[in-house]
Simulated scan of single mutants.
Amino acid sequence: MRAAVLYGQQDLRLETIADPTPGPGEVIIAVQAATTCGTDLKVWRRGGHARMLTPPILFGHEAAGEIVALGPGVSGWQLGQRVVANNSAPCRDCFYCHRHEYSLCQNLEFNNGTYAEYLKIPARIVAQNLLAIPDQLATPIAAMTEPLACVLHGVARCGFSPDQVRSWPQPPQILVIGDGAIGLMFVGVLAQQGARVILAGGSASRLEIGQTFGATTILNHRQTPDLPTVIRELTSGLGADIVIEATGVPSVWETAIACTRPGGTVNLFGGCPRDTQITVNTEQLHYGELTLKGVFHNTPFYVRQALKVLSENSIPWSKLITQTAPLSELEATFQAMLNRQVIKVAIDPRA
């Protein structure tokens, strides 16, 4: 089969390798749509990932397709069935799993290799995070289950809930910094749950999508040199109740903290380069009683919730997929992502 293999920093090669065969409990799917994402772009640029992969390795982690082979002991699945698989599964038996903190699992098993004609799903993921795609849901949209699961996990970790919308004098004011696919997903989910969402980003077309997804205010950072001051002006001089950082840039993490009101929460969602550091104003942190949260990945619960949300089709998720491209154009696709010419691209290995 044809597959993309990451060898290092911006060193991605299309190779012909043996078709995978399923072992006990495993499933093989023919990939019909592998969606690109900001994480893959960062991994391609940096040449690796702190937890998810070490080159050389098969590349890509968002995909949906059709079951073509079942390993010994697999039951409840059929050949030809459309499925989506999360790219990980917890062990369920470590310190964190016993406390239901599955994203922190000490033995979290990752699976890469979606930019290929076929993808082997490990037994642990088959058991916990392989899901049937509803008939009405398009395969490329279903492939976005993994990033949306991360977003839903992130929303929950903010402490935000629809109960706040009902109990507070006004809806929570939430700032999302970053107009990539993840930032836009946050906007859609939060707006649907009743929050007043401010979106800050650098692309006029993406900010327009943010408005379509429910953002009440959009700010182009190229025209907003002092974002914390503008946010205070928009929030009666206080700052946002919750700020979600979705860029993975250390300086923007600091900006996110500066945009938060006393008593507010900062969700540091975007993963920064390894070993980077930020500076925090201790007076603001202490006397302002800020909550800073690092949020990583997802859990089996949110994987299921994500597929359900996508299936409800109450948000125009297709606006996040700029185009479809064959596997042979994967390198060019990452260049286009680097230049912010596309948001997500559905790679079709069959083309």
Rank of each mutant, 00 (worst) to 15 (best):
T212F: 06
T216K: 15
E117H: 15
H221E: 12
I218Y: 06
F160P: 14
L152P: 14
G214W: 08
G214Q: 09
P134Y: 08
A181M: 09
P122N: 07
G202C: 02
L131G: 00
L234D: 03
L131Q: 02
M144A: 11
S236D: 14
P147Y: 05
Q164F: 12
Q192V: 07
A142N: 13
T235F: 07
L184V: 13
T139H: 09
I125L: 13
G194M: 05
D135T: 15
L219M: 15
V189K: 02
Q173C: 10
I174K: 00
T235Q: 07
G214P: 13
I209S: 08
M185S: 14
P134E: 07
M144K: 06
P134I: 06
F160K: 05
R196M: 07
P225Y: 06
A127L: 08
A215D: 09
A123N: 13
L184G: 02
S205V: 08
G159F: 01
A142T: 13
A138M: 08
N220C: 03
I125N: 04
P122L: 05
S161V: 11
I133K: 06
T212I: 06
R222V: 02
D163W: 11
I198W: 01
G194C: 12
V165Q: 08
T145V: 12
A142C: 14
V126S: 05
I133C: 10
N220S: 14
C150D: 06
I182C: 10
P140A: 09
H221P: 06
G201I: 02
R157D: 02
L152R: 06
I133L: 12
A181F: 07
G183V: 10
E146C: 06
Q192A: 15
L152D: 04
P171N: 05
V126F: 11
S161L: 10
G159H: 09
G237L: 03
V155I: 15
V126M: 14
L227S: 15
V197H: 06
T235P: 03
G154W: 00
I141S: 11
T224L: 12
I198N: 01
Q173D: 02
S161Q: 04
A127E: 15
T216I: 13
P225C: 07
G202A: 10
G201K: 01
P122G: 07
G239N: 00
L148E: 10
I133F: 07
G237E: 02
V151H: 04
S205D: 14
A195W: 02
Q192W: 04
A132E: 15
A138T: 11
I174S: 00
G202R: 10
L131Y: 01
S161R: 12
T139L: 11
L184T: 00
A181H: 15
L238S: 09
P134G: 08
P122W: 03
V189L: 07
I177R: 00
H221A: 11
P171S: 12
R222N: 15
L137E: 11
G202T: 12
C158T: 15
A127Q: 15
P147V: 05
N129A: 13
I121N: 01
A195T: 12
V176N: 00
M144Q: 13
V155T: 13
C150E: 09
S167E: 10
P122I: 05
F213R: 01
G159R: 03
R124P: 03
S167F: 09
L131W: 02
V151P: 04
T139Y: 01
Q128K: 08
G194L: 10
G178Q: 04
